[in-house]
Write a protein that binds this DNA or RNA. Structure first.
Length: 939
RNA sequence: GCCUUGGUGGCGGAAUUGGUAGACGCGCUGGAUUCAAAAUCCAGUUCCGGUUUCGGAGUGUGGGUUCGAUUCCCACCCAAGGUACCA
């Protein structure tokens, strides 16, 4: 009876599907456990072996938890809105829904081949109207809410209206747009309905605002900063211009502090927390106003060091600062203009490459020091960014490296305000251990006291106030694209109106072209049926728009992160048509216990999802403020590319070992054409559909082989180094693939894929299978196990449980191999050992485990059978003593059974005194007992 | 520059609380089986020297703590990822 993995795997995958083995129930006596993968974007290329790494890890954990008696929720779905499907549609005219559907089919087949224990009855797709109906509903909730800084949470907009009606906006403390005019209750009540709506819009958690964006006419869309390289678009290299657009924004900044605080309550990797912390960028300091001499205007600056205000000797504005043009004197205008021009030309790359060059220009204008009244030069410099703080800094050269360098370069005075500090060579950037000097009422004060005093003075004199500044910006939520969620919004008198819940979803309309319209409207501008009839409450033809009952619908769509910011809650109750998730379901499942995915989502998805979760929590829709208790970042699997070497200027390919000093050009060869000994299938290479030019190429062989070169790179189609999991499953089986992906190395680390290594885990499975056979027939005996056999079993059990709990799946595979080798050597064929062994292997290699379980005479699936219980007494039979060092003194290590009591340990140690006395030649003086298993005996 | 993670054989990687470094796998070498091959099994495999018992070096580099350091401390070098002049 051979290990026929193809049949075994096909049979059990069918069994699991037919019996809905992994369907989770929303009620159970068992404790709950929710394991989730970041759901994939179904791309046209299908899965490569890098994708399933995290899924295999989470599947092992999910299966382990089922064996441990948990009611496990382990769902999967698709983040199916996105740009690639739209780009493909633009090129081919195929509807994105069609290609997305086809891609999902491929994904599903590939995922099924690997034997995941997903509960597919809960599958979700963000592009399904049943799903995005609730994305739209959440948007409406955000629109109908404001952030109350007094209660420090989001509240329904009606509470704000009540406040306005009673007191106007004087007493309201809200997270909102910066410049809102004050109004009284009387004013408010006298406002027209439109005026009221316009005011409220400035307070809502999602709001319309004029935002300057990177507009790319070539792609007809707005680009994120990281979609641009050197001022042109990353894809296509089209030019990009700055353009103001009216767009939806999300007031994530209202949650800045709570997003920071929440990090302390969740078990996420420190690097990921650090990058969120940096992204939010909290800094504590003060706003200070500087009066400009001979002008009405003041310059506001944010500073983290208001205590150093007496060290200010100049100010620097960003070249783009709005006051620059106004205050520059005629004498300096030419130089300033020239500098601004030069700055705008400098690419990001230039600015990055040369941090050391100091540049700037004097405006000729002066500000007045708020305390001394002294005249201070106002400069512009490109080290000050318009986008951070107020776009202006008060320069304290004695206390800031950049200000110091600037002052030295332009010969500006560097007054020293730190007592007993030498600043002739460099500035003093520290806070502690120095007292202020030359600072009037701050003289002699240390940092903390000075900060308090200066903020008190600033506020008393109304020239500034203490402030906490965040780098985090509000998130732009509009996209000029087709393949995304439509907004549930129509416009009446230019003001946005929400569509009521009962008329959702607002389904994506059909369009002829997926490109923006000729006059620059988003793709939805092409739709003929895209207006809202407020009487019929349905979508009607745009021709019917009038100013009383039919209004135009929003043309933008939501960004990719909308659907992924709440999907984990939907899995709890995926088919609910009346609510985004029912109260019962979310009260039962609560939150994700384990979330696995890549670290590239650190400041995107993982920040937005936390924001929405907190918002829905504030409104009482969710019981938890953080959506995932524990998170693990799996590392990337890299490809091992193969190279062939063409002699320069010829069509001759030379084998790697024969290159020598010859000039060659390295060309990627498809890794599928290379065997495990790095030999190229030359005929295959010549006939490869993508290598037409090399059909008649000549190959110079080493012996009779052509040997390729190898290099580790990111797995990608263009590098011909993609390994398809289907091939591996076909050749070695899904269980081999699962074991091997884990065996490659630590889950969180990036590691290269090398197909050659898979034979090791595959032969382990064959050996495991053979353990259960006698004379080619399935047979186990009922004899009692020996001590050694029990030791093997319990050693394996202990290690495997520890490994799974610590997510070091790679070492468990080794442990299994050792166990199988030991049991093979002992010719162990006993049920008492082999039955628990099958259980242990089950999370890792579920198909073979199921088959063994069946052959052991059990019915049903192994998947919820309890794990065997670890008994420490089987591990170490007797104590063993050995000397560990000799250096004047002699020490010994004594290995003891794990379950020994203190008294027993002492007894054993005494018993070993004799042995030690013999080894050392004298009796030990002192005995150090370390709790655990090692005892040091000082001789 | 800053933050984070890491650096161990030909390769991927083990090593608990500081206690026999190199588990396990790949590769390689030799052997068994076979007409032969595949498959399987056995033995060896950190490096350098004697090569049967052995000696020396050795976990990026240089120091330190310790009877004892891959592990702890300090400084440095290198690599990967993140971030971008944050006032």
């Amino acid at each position: 009876m051979e290990y026929n993995f193809r049949k075994i795997e096909a049979d059990w995958q069918k069994y699991w599907a037919d019996n809905e083995t992994f369907k989770a129930s929303n009620q159970s006596e068992k404790p709950k456990y929710y394991v989730l993968d970041m759901f994939p974007y179904p791309s046209g290329a299908g899965l490569h072996v890098g994708h399933p790494l995290g899924y295999i890890a989470s599947d092992i954990y999910a299966r382990y938890k089922r064996h441990k008696g948990f009611n496990v929720l382990h769902p999967q779905g698709y983040d199916s809105f996105g740009l690639p499907a739209e780009q493909y549609a633009i090129q081919t005219g195929q509807h994105p829904a069609t290609t997305t559907e086809a891609n999902i089919k491929t994904y599903r087949r590939q995922l099924d081949n690997i034997g995941f224990s997903f509960d597919w009855s809960r599958e979700i797709r963000t592009s399904n109207a049943d799903y995005y109906k609730w994305t739209q509903w959440i948007f409406i909730q955000l629109f109908n809410a404001w952030y109350n800084l007094d209660s420090d949470k989001s509240e329904d907009i009606s509470t704000l209206i009540t406040l306005f009606e009673a007191d106007g906006n004087a007493t309201v403390k809200a997270a909102c747009d910066d410049e809102i005019d004050a109004f009284t209750a009387t004013d408010w009540n006298a406002f027209s309905e439109d005026k009221k709506q316009a005011v409220l819009l400035q307070y809502r958690l999602t709001f319309l605002s004029e935002t300057e964006v990177n507009w790319c006419p070539g792609l007809g869309t707005v680009l994120a900063n990281d979609e641009m390289v050197n001022g042109v678009s990353e894809r296509g290299g089209h030019t990009v211009v700055r353009k103001k657009m009216k767009q939806w924004s999300m007031r994530i900044s209202a949650y800045a502090q709570r997003l920071l605080d929440g990090l302390n309550t969740i078990d996420w990797p420190q690097p990921l927390k650090d990058s969120q912390t940096n992204w939010i960028g909290r800094s504590q300091g003060a706003m200070v106003s500087f009066q400009i001499e001979k002008f009405e205007e003041k310059i506001d600056v944010f500073t983290t060091r208001p205590d150093t205000i007496y060290g200010v000797s100049f100010m620097t504005l960003a070249p783009e600062h709005e006051l620059v043009q106004k205050i520059v004197t005629d004498e300096h205008r030419a130089t300033v203009e020239e500098y601004i021009k030069a700055t705008s030309k400098r690419s990001e790359l230039d600015r990055m490459a040369d941090v050391k060059t100091i540049s700037g220009a004097f405006t000729g204008a002066y500000a007045l020091h708020p305390f001394t009244g002294e005249k201070i030069q106002i400069w512009i410099g490109d080290y000050v960014l318009a986008s951070y703080g107020t776009g202006a800094v008060m320069a304290v050269p004695c206390g800031d490296q950049r200000d110091y360098a600037f002052a030295k370069h332009f010969n500006i005075a560097i007054p020293n305000i730190f007592a007993d500090t030498d600043i002739s060579e460099t500035c003093f950037e520290g806070k502690e251990g120095v007292k202020l000097a030359n600072s009037d009422f701050l003289n002699g004060l240390p940092y903390k006291k000075a900060m308090k005093t200066i903020i008190y003075e600033l506020e008393k004199r109304s020239i500034g106030y203490g402030k906490i500044n965040y780098r985090l910006r509000d998130a732009v939520f509009s996209r000029q694209r087709y393949w995304g969620e439509p907004f549930p919004v129509y416009y009446k008198n230019g003001l946005p109106q929400m569509i009521a819940k009962e008329f959702l979803p607002i389904a994506l309309p059909e369009v002829e072209k997926y490109l923006p319209t000729e006059d620059g409207k988003p793709p939805l501008g092409n739709a003929e049926v895209w207006a809202w009839d407020t009487e019929k409450n349905e979508i009607v033809n745009t021709d019917l728009v009038n100013d009383t009952t039919v209004f135009p619908l929003e043309l933008n769509t939501m960004p990719g992160w909308a659907g992924s910011s709440w999907y984990f809650n939907r899995y709890m109750d995926a088919s609910n048509t009346g609510d985004f998730v029912s109260k019962e379901a979310v009260d039962y499942w609560q939150d994700i216990d384990l979330y696995i995915g890549g670290s590239e989502h650190a400041t995107g998805h993982l920040l937005y999802a936390r924001f929405w979760q907190k918002f829905l929590f504030d409104l009482g829709h969710l019981p938890k403020e953080e959506f995932a208790k524990k998170l693990i970042n799996q590392g990337m699997i890299l490809g091992t590319s193969a190279f062939v070497y063409r002699l320069e200027g010829t069509n001759k390919f030379v084998s790697k070992g024969l290159i020598g000093d010859q000039k060659v050009q390295a060309i990627h060869a498809d890794v599928a054409l290379v065997n495990t000994s790095d030999e190229l299938d030359v005929e295959g290479f010549k006939n490869h559909p993508l290598n037409r030019d090399y059909k008649d190429a000549e190959f110079i062989l080493e012996g009779d082989k052509y040997v390729v070169g190898r290099e580790v790179e990111k797995m990608s189609k263009s590098k011909y180094n993609v390994v398809n999991p289907d091939q591996i499953c076909e050749e070695y089986g899904a269980d081999s693939l699962r074991l091997f992906e884990m065996f490659l190395g630590p889950l969180e680390q990036a590691k290269p894929w090398k197909t050659s290594g898979i034979s090791g885990v595959h032969s382990f499975l064959k050996k495991l299978w053979k353990l259960y056979l006698v004379d080619e027939k399935f047979s186990v005996n009922e004899e009692a196990p020996t001590k050694d056999e029990l030791k093997t079993l319990h050693k394996t059990l202990k290690k495997v449980e520890e490994d799974i709990e610590n997510f070091s799946f790679n070492t468990s595979v080794s442990t299994f191999m050792i166990a199988v080798n030991e049991l093979t050597a002992a010719k162990c064929n006993k049920r008492a050992i082999l039955e628990p062994l099958a259980l242990l292997v089950s999370p890792y290699a579920p198909h073979i485990a199921e088959e063994l379980w069946k052959n052991l005479g059990h019915t049903g699936s192994i998947s919820t059978v309890d794990f065997p219980v670890f008994e420490p007494k089987h591990l170490i039979e007797s104590s063993k003593v050995y000397p560990i060092s000799f250096n004047g003194k002699m020490r010994f290590t004594l290995e003891l059974p794990l379950d020994m009591s203190k008294e027993e340990i002492e007894k054993t140690v005494m018993a070993h005194e004799k042995t030690i006395a013999q080894l050392a030649g004298r009796t030990p003086k002192k005995i150090i007992i370390v709790p655990g298993k090692i005892v040091n005996l000082v001789g």
